[in-house]
Design a protein around this nucleic acid. Structure first.
Lengths: 209, 209, 209, 209
DNA sequence: GATGAATGAGATTTCATTCAT
DNA sequence: TATGAATGAAATCTCATTCAT
């Protein structure tokens, strides 16, 4: 909280490499133990560097996590703009499905960061609002599509979109932290549920009628 | 790490009262600071008792949290059996809605416990599986109703039910920890979404046309 | 150190019984864990009584140990006067042997107390002098016999006698705390050594000459 | 209870110095208060270092004591091989006397360690056997000389040797902890006693006759 | 006489962070 | 740039002793 992260300094090639080693090591350790249980000692051991070096690049443990969250944020932020219009037909389902897949990929890639983040957020009331806001970015994109689709009658699109993001997030958390995979079939099911729930998607392959 | 003191001892009236005071105080403190930031010292101060007394009843902070989780579990467990058949019509929506409301009430009542629990689970890989299993109980009840309703075509009912529970859980988390209310309107929206998504619920009151 | 041992109070039959239970229980616990590691809790559990009762009879843990030591002291003190004149012949050996045997019996009977006592003495410089003085009583008796025997030329009888007591004490300690028995043969050997060393005892059965 | 930190790490010059400071400080504190009463806090104060530093080098108080015991063990172990053949004449007495003197020097040098060790052993049944085994090393050397001298008839050399070591040990303990010196005269007396008792030593300077 | 709940001083231990080299 | 020894605030936990019933 106090010091200055060295992030301000212009880094030479070697410096960048060391910083990268620390970030990667942190991912590994956060994956293993979460944020609180992760000791700076563990991180520098995995990075094969020293305590002193750590504080050359980050002002403290939280600073490092924020750097990782920022990295993750760039990838996750891409979700804001990658969802096209979602119709009630097969095309709409496909559109939604690819977006869900993208979300899942991003989540899995940064799972340790998200885990650590959740861990930190739980201890820091102030951060909770931020987290809500962050999820909000993605949710807004979705809410827009719901309104646009015209099938959101009787539904508060903001709340619904938030809920969908919450669902995707927590679903991945539960499955992955318990060591169970998030397979394509599960993502199909979630997609279908959301498609029907918010975009007027019909029962799939209800051929006759 | 062990955890056993008080559990073994048969408690008299006074003992029970003191234990209750500690559990309640912990709820308060966990709500304020989360699990990790909560110090045993804070808890005993709120409970107006002493450090030593704490360890008379719980072997450590985690032991106390587990006791609270067990209490919460009884209330949450009631949700397993409180969801009746859900049809695609208005009645079905009502049934689902009351269940969602019940979930929301339980969640809000034990919000601090759930927050603390999440906090702890994040640091303890072993517990993650347990948490998944616990959520599974409620999810199974829902999955059963989905299958029974016959509108789950193209959906893996287990995954979908899990996802709904995940959604309700995380949605409450996001809103409440950010200090925003979970109002009836939002619950209506979630209900509608799920009703359409899993139980063939139509657009509400789409009378004419 | 502070309070008043209730020992002052005149005890009724029931009171005596409870006190006895506590003393016996303490012997058991001291035997198992030594003085420092013995918790008052252990003692009252073995005695099937309560914390409060303990302090009704003893002002603290040390007080109880002193009571046990006093008991042991009566038995050990008998050694002061039970050693008759020790000649250089077979009779002298017999006299010495019976005294050594008596010492051994007393020691083994109060082994837990002696162990606890040693434990306490180690932590309390002030008590060390007392312990020395106590051992001195027995040693003086022995020193007297050495002088009297006329075979102590070139030997400081006080130091020698002290050393013999030290030897008997520590030898028992080493053997018994290590779980090995102190058999008659070993006592015979020690007796012979001392008999030759201080009382002019010859090689046994040096018949001729 | 584990015990490992510093042992693993390779120490630089500074590290060694700090460790030495801690070991020396512990000797001082153990001498003043014994093992149980010695607080880690006291040790670091004497060593003019910090609490945290202590745990950088030792995993706990017991670990430190074991390190000291190991050091003392090297010195004491030298006694195993420093006793030459002991005849029944003046030369034999001299040989024995120098060995006794060596024992006394070693003991006095490590008195605080031995005191602490005794203190710890009293609380830990498991360690008692170890202590017995350690004493055994020195005792075996002595037993060998007894057998070799041919004057051990009627004596179990192992028991006798053990007893002599026990005597030397406890005699020093009693005297030193009580603040009384172990003077040369006392050591002469003990030597004479053992020489006569186990090696056929005659009455000293019984010139005529 | 007896009980066991309550106390709180004090002991051990951890670990994020600083600093001298 | 890098190192790792040193720091010390804070956290956990124990247990002899007191006290209300």
């Amino acid at each position: 909280m106090t010091g200055e992260p060295a992030s301000k300094r212009a880094l030479r090639t070697q410096g960048r490499k060391t910083m990268r080693k620390l970030l990667d090591a942190a991912m590994v350790v956060f994956a293993r133990r979460g944020y609180h249980a992760a000791r700076v000692d563990d991180i520098v051991k995995v990075a094969r560097t020293s305590h002193g070096t750590f504080y050359l690049y980050f002002s403290n443990k939280e600073d490092l996590l924020r750097a990782l969250v920022a990295e993750a944020g760039e990838v996750v932020g891409a979700l804001d703009s990658s969802l096209g219009p979602v119709g009630s037909g097969q095309d709409g389902w496909q559109e939604l499905r690819q977006w869900v897949g993208q979300f899942s990929d991003a989540w899995q890639r940064y799972a340790p960061v998200l885990r650590a983040w959740t861990d930190l957020v739980m201890s820091d009331t102030e951060l909770s609002a931020q987290a809500h806001a962050a999820a909000g970015g993605v949710a807004r994109a979705l809410a827009g599509r719901v309104v646009e689709s015209g099938h959101g009658a009787g539904i508060d699109p903001t709340a619904a979109a938030e809920a969908v993001v919450a669902m995707l997030d927590r679903f991945h958390q539960l499955r992955l932290f318990a060591g169970e995979p998030v397979d394509a079939g599960a993502l199909d099911s979630l997609t279908t549920m959301v498609h029907r729930g918010l975009f007027g998607g019909g029962a799939p392959a209800r051929p006759a009628r």
